[in-house]
Amino acid sequence: MGYPIRTLLMALIIGLPATVYAGSEAVTVENAWARAAIGTSRPGAAYMDISNTGDEAVTLTGIETDIAMMPMIHRSATDAKGVSSMSMAGDIVIAPGETVMLEPGGYHAMLMKLRQPMEEGESFPLILLFSDGGIVVVEVPILGIAARGPEG
């Protein structure tokens, strides 16, 4: 009651900057593809290039899709002894102007507990979740099991 209206307005502007949704709104996705999976007991994998065309960092916090009960971003790594392992990626910060590649042998959308088989030639929507509350929906084409990249 006692606060002058200008102070309230200032608080609003500082607390809710106009760029709240500019973060994930500035995200573009290219070269999305997934590898077909045999049956539903094996996990599937999807790949894409996620670019931040905005002027502030965005943070990818997770993924969702109807085709899998447990979709999450994982990262494969191969150590100096040639041993490959996989772990949950956690949040991925994409700096302004940067592109994060989800590609074989690195970050990938790991689709665990498939609800339906991932058949070559079909596609499915995958939702990217960002820390600012924004989402980006990507339609992911399913390529063959032996595909090496978005071109097949």
Binding site: P43, T78, S84, G105, H108, A146, A147, R148
Partner: peptide, 17 residues
Amino acid sequence: FTYCPDVCPTTLSDISG
């Protein structure tokens, strides 16, 4: 192993190539 979603199919594809 065949339940490997990322590294193994990539190796098999690389070898096929």
